[in-house]
Computed example of a mutant assay.
Amino acid sequence: MYKIEVESAKKVIKATISGMLSLDDVKNYQDELITTCSKLNISEYVLIIDAREQKAMSQDAIPYVEQIMKFYADTPFKKRFSVMLESAIAMSQVNRVGKKEVELFELVTSVEEAYAKI
């Protein structure tokens, strides 16, 4: 499951990702994220990724995860935060797929911590 929320007043895009996403979920997330960002003056927005409850993904989803990670890196967000994943396996997978992109995010322990740092 995923949810993308835009908080215009705070200039925040918050993406919440949990569980094990199917290939279709990953594709839909990618499409929705790109569409959402294309409607905003993105350099004014902070991106918060809350994927702490995300599980490892199937291998067929990995190419799309790589594209999403590249989108995170190539999009000029004002700041990027990521809540640390609870699953060590999922965190290892994310680091393996997007090592360079992960380094662009400030890791936080909660969404509230990210908001406090904006």
Rank of each mutant, 00 (worst) to 15 (best):
M1V: 11
M1Y: 07
Y2C: 03
Y2T: 03
Y2H: 12
K3S: 09
K3N: 13
K3M: 03
E5G: 03
E5M: 11
V6F: 01
K10V: 08
K10N: 12
K10W: 07
K10F: 07
V12S: 02
V12P: 04
I13F: 04
I13A: 05
I13H: 02
T16L: 00
I17P: 04
I17K: 00
I17Q: 05
S18M: 09
M20T: 06
L21R: 01
S22L: 01
L23S: 04
D24S: 14
V26Y: 01
V26N: 01
K27P: 01
Q30E: 10
D31C: 00
D31R: 08
E32S: 09
E32R: 00
I34C: 00
T35D: 08
C37H: 06
S38N: 15
K39C: 04
L40P: 05
L40H: 07
L40T: 05
N41H: 11
I42M: 04
S43D: 07
E44F: 11
E44C: 02
L47E: 01
I48E: 11
D50K: 03
D50V: 04
D50W: 04
A51T: 07
A51R: 09
R52K: 13
E53Y: 14
Q54S: 14
Q54K: 06
Q54L: 14
Q54W: 02
A56C: 03
S58C: 06
Q59P: 06
D60E: 15
A61K: 02
A61I: 03
P63D: 02
Y64N: 10
Y64H: 12
E66Q: 10
E66G: 06
Q67D: 11
I68A: 03
I68Y: 00
I68L: 10
M69R: 04
M69T: 09
M69K: 00
M69S: 13
K70N: 05
F71A: 00
Y72T: 02
Y72S: 01
A73I: 07
A73M: 10
A73P: 05
P76T: 03
F77D: 02
F77A: 11
K78M: 12
K78W: 03
R80W: 06
R80M: 14
F81Q: 05
F81E: 10
V83F: 05
V83D: 04
M84D: 13
L85G: 08
L85Y: 09
E86C: 14
S87M: 09
A88H: 08
A88C: 11
I89H: 09
A90Q: 00
Q93V: 08
V94K: 08
V94Y: 10
N95C: 06
N95R: 14
R96C: 08
R96I: 08
R96E: 12
R96T: 13
K100L: 12
K100D: 15
K100W: 12
K100F: 12
K100N: 15
E101D: 07
E101M: 12
V102S: 15
V102F: 15
V102N: 15
E103N: 11
L104I: 13
L104S: 11
L104W: 07
F105V: 02
F105K: 00
L107S: 15
L107G: 12
V108K: 11
V108Q: 05
V108I: 03
T109V: 14
S110Q: 08
E112F: 01
Y115C: 09
K117G: 00
I118W: 10
I118L: 15
I118V: 11
